[in-house]
Design a protein around this nucleic acid. Structure first.
Lengths: 217, 217
DNA sequence: TGTACATCAGTGAACGCGCGTTCACTGATGTAC
DNA sequence: TGTACATCAGTGAACGCGCGTTCACTGATGTAC
């Protein structure tokens, strides 16, 4: 059944615990509260022993970043099954950000100093929502924006990026995708980072609705 | 002429230098590169002497934040004199963010842990652009958005915030203001924080144009 | 099934890091009479 | 205009902080024959 030795079992269990504890620390105290020593402490092992499981602090961050990207993308996946719309994407991301504000900041806030995400580990989970959104905007039934388009070659870099993700978007879709993405994340950032002052918590969903409808969706 | 003693002169000069050095450090190494000890070092005084000029590190941050808000708002002010449009606001902020990416992150990125901006020192400079934008959107010639509006009382918190800034916006303007603001800052954040992958630097202005036109301006 | 060796989890001590911040002090500048 | 005192800039030593990371080590688990 298990098809693996006790040692391997224990290792998997410990790795899972590290992710759990790391997330708990992140939720509780933000990134600055996440430390290898702290995790070792909670695991009940000596501080240097953590290096049996994690190469260094940045590797731990990569784990947490992947996990956050996966979590929010799963949430959006689920929600889209019931209602396949741009608004649902926005509202679901917004709800997730409310539950996990520090994880939100980790993936969509200011980049972490001295940290470089390894592309092969983060690109796929980190772009899942963007892919969903682009596909949504590419559906013929969806009216894409009336925005002026820049000369075709200008969007080359973006087009290539999306092609690597298996998409074949035309220029209108690229522009719409970038625009909706920026606006949705911008609104959530503004809300999470408190840029509209206090008392706005009650209206978050309404603001998202207004934004998405202004964008024409 | 001077109407002040040499000591006062020297103090003013030193204070100005502190802002200059702090900004230079911020530009060069980001927030983590800004330290009281480092500034003292550059001033050629002993590390504890810096406390004659700055109460503590957070007070220094407040100085830098005020300065950044003032700088970007001045830039927008100037630009609006030549062309009073939403696009100009966006393009000017974008250009400023390109010149001062770390200052941009300081004021519009993830909030700084353990730092609380003193409202009386940062609210006015921090809201200047928002005020300009809201006034722009309130002009009768500007078509405000076709977005669905939430029930009037829902926007109370936002309306009060704007009223404290001397504005009397109706609900359409409030919604438009929040939407445009979020979207513009969201796009700039996405660009500055590298969320669209490499090679997008060439098209920044075009993306801003597309965004603003999608928003109906 | 038993033995010999290899792998791996965990130990304990130690570095270096540079920072923010406090404190009692000295000597120069400013001010009141 | 000169003197006595108050203010203020700058000194130098010292704390505490908790972290990431390395290293040589022990003892338990896994594997090959």
């Amino acid at each position: 059944m298990t098809n693996s030795t006790p040692r391997q079992q224990a290792r998997l269990e410990t790795e899972a615990q590290i992710t759990r504890i790391g997330n708990r620390m992140l939720d509780a105290d933000g990134l600055e509260g996440v430390s290898l020593r702290g995790i070792a402490r909670e695991l009940g092992i000596v501080s240097s022993a953590i290096y049996r499981y994690v190469k260094n602090r940045n590797a731990l961050l990569t784990i947490l970043i992947r996990d956050a990207f996966t979590s929010i993308a799963d949430a959006v996946d689920d929600a889209l099954e019931h209602d396949n719309s741009v608004l649902t994407v926005g509202v679901t991301m917004l709800a997730w950000s409310r539950t996990h504000p520090n994880r939100w900041a980790l993936i969509y806030g200011t980049p972490i100093p001295d940290y470089q995400a390894p592309r092969d580990e983060t690109v796929v989970p980190g772009t899942r929502i963007m892919v969903l959104l682009t596909n949504l905007l590419a559906e013929p039934t969806v009216q894409t924006s009336r925005s002026q388009l820049p000369p075709t070659h200008a969007l080359d870099a973006l087009r290539e990026g999306l092609q690597e993700l298996g998409l074949e978007p035309d220029d209108r879709v690229i522009m719409a995708s970038v625009t909706v993405w920026s606006a949705v994340i911008g609104l959530i950032n503004a809300l999470r980072f408190g840029q509209f002052g206090p008392g706005v918590e009650q209206v978050e969903d309404e603001l998202m609705q207004g934004l998405v409808s202004t964008l024409g969706h």
